[in-house]
Amino acid sequence: MMQENKKEIESMQDPILEIRNLRVLFPVHKKWLPAVDGVDLTIQPGEITGIVGESGSGKSVMSQSVLRLRDHDTAVRYEGEILFEKENLLKWSLKQMRNIRGNRISVIFQDPLNSLSPVHTVESQLMEVLILHKKISKEEAKKKSVQMLKMIGIPNPENCMKKYPFELSGGMQQRVMIAIALACEPKLLIADEPTTALDVTIQEQILYLIQDLNKKLGMSILFITHDLGAVSNLCHSVKVMYLGQIVEDAKTEELFTHPLHPYTKGLLACIPHLAVERRKELPTIPGSVPSLSHIPEGCHFCTRCHEADERCRKMPPPVVEATPGHTVKCWKYAEGGKKNEVGV
């Protein structure tokens, strides 16, 4: 008990990752448009943080910004701060970034088959990170790689080392990706929809594996998904993202039992339940995510929100701490809003 308390206090003091007022802008028709628009986020050591949102909500861009992966492909502008162990990564050169990538911060992507090079063996792609960051010999890297594959639950790892990605099943491919990502024992793992491209049964296995590895290795995880089911099982806290902004932030249980933002409520209502009458139509959120060039003036969600009023359309809503540790970006909960609904 005491120890746990102590741990908690320690972790509260030193977050692994702290994102402060991050904006990520891309040039569209000669104008800089924000794909991420003022995100604040803190990840404690060992914590699994979920980011939920529809496609186009900016969750992937935000996570890639942490490693500055977009810098190579397109013109991109960052504002704000990304503090990893108190160092602002946005101030770093790409050369400095390379020492962190795959070493202290790793990523696993959505589609394992396309995320692995089809013409290189598992061995070549896995050993590479170890040789690069740990500065160890080929033989040592090989030994460590086999250990990694074994830990990740790949049967007959020696055999797997010699294989090409297309010779493995989707689940095995994603396990190899995870092995590559965790080979150098990173402090932070960014999992960008790691289960989206997989079969439902395999999804379960991969989620279980991630949870297990989190307990074993103690790295923090930024888990990006649109699968609310996965979030509820895995994450300690959840951030709901919409059009580049975090609209609601709470501990997982709190968010699922007391959702505040109309968007969160909408998302939760969309989860099909087996108990629900079969022929009943599933509720959906009307409309779709507007493009970057059509972001509404006030609250970003106002075009699709059935509770939006004049104020929502004119002025961006403030971030309100509804209950301790539970924040929401909505006029409804602001001072002078409909106070009686707070905490419902």
Partner: peptide, 10 residues
């Protein structure tokens, strides 16, 4: 995507 993976490895 695998180019992005390679970059993400450092």
């Amino acid at each position: 995507n695998f180019i992005q993976t390679a970059r993400a490895k450092g």
